[in-house]
Simulated scan of single mutants.
Amino acid sequence: MSLMSLKKTRRVQVIAMATVALVISTALIGYAMRDGINFFRSPSQVMEEPPAPNETFRIGGLVEEGSVVRGQGHEVRFSVTDGGASVPVVFSGVLPDLFSENQGMVGTGRYVNGVFEASEILAKHDETYMPKEVMDALKEQGVYQEATPGS
């Protein structure tokens, strides 16, 4: 073999190895992130197309007035609504201090047998903040109005 064809062969081998390494690393990153990506759904979307019981996702909306029921220990049951639909939620744990009725919340968990079993609940962090996904879902249902300055 000549020196030129040896260089070409070596270059092709290096490119092939780099391509294989890139494909393997992309597959490993995707496999590692498979449980780390949680899609957001509004209560209306959950009721229209209920997700599989093994799918972890985020749900957001307003805590429905009069729906908060505290059970034994740290168990809390309530409903989250976007004005178009309500989804019952059960959560075992300590709720955030700012959690209250008619306030925005986002929960992470699974929808099993018609109930969202939350593993985490997040509440708004001040009087004016609402997560973008929750705001968009409430606007879609005609429930959310922009706050006017000074009100």
Rank of each mutant, 00 (worst) to 15 (best):
L22T: 15
G83I: 03
Q103V: 10
G142T: 03
D35A: 09
G142R: 00
D136E: 14
R77I: 03
H74L: 15
S25Y: 10
K7V: 14
V23K: 01
G66T: 10
Q13L: 12
P51D: 02
R34F: 00
N54T: 15
K7D: 11
S79M: 12
T128I: 01
I15P: 03
D126I: 06
R34N: 05
R41F: 10
L138S: 01
E55I: 08
F78D: 01
A85T: 04
E48V: 11
R70I: 06
T81W: 02
N38E: 13
G142S: 05
I29W: 12
V23I: 15
G30K: 07
F40T: 08
S25R: 07
V12Q: 14
M4P: 00
M135R: 15
L95H: 03
S25P: 13
E120Q: 13
V80I: 09
K139Y: 00
G60P: 11
G60M: 00
P50A: 08
M47Y: 00
N102R: 13
K124A: 11
S44D: 09
V46Y: 06
A52Q: 02
E55D: 14
Y31L: 09
R10S: 15
V76E: 02
M135C: 07
N113I: 07
V134C: 05
I37H: 12
G93T: 09
E117M: 10
E75W: 01
L98R: 07
V106G: 02
D97T: 10
D126V: 08
G71D: 05
K139W: 06
S100E: 10
G93A: 04
L138T: 06
V106H: 00
F78N: 05
P53M: 03
M105P: 05
V68L: 01
L6H: 13
H74V: 12
V134P: 01
V94S: 11
V87N: 04
T9W: 14
D126K: 06
P51L: 05
F99G: 09
I121C: 02
V69A: 08
S86E: 04
T81Y: 01
M130Y: 06
E127H: 07
T128K: 13
A123P: 04
A137D: 03
V90S: 12
I29A: 15
A85G: 01
S67D: 01
G73Q: 05
R110N: 12
F57S: 09
G84N: 02
G107V: 06
F78I: 03
E120N: 10
G114R: 02
Q103D: 11
Y111E: 05
N38R: 13
S86Y: 04
V63D: 00
S42L: 07
R41M: 09
Q72N: 11
K8Y: 15
G66A: 05
E101M: 03
S86N: 03
R110S: 11
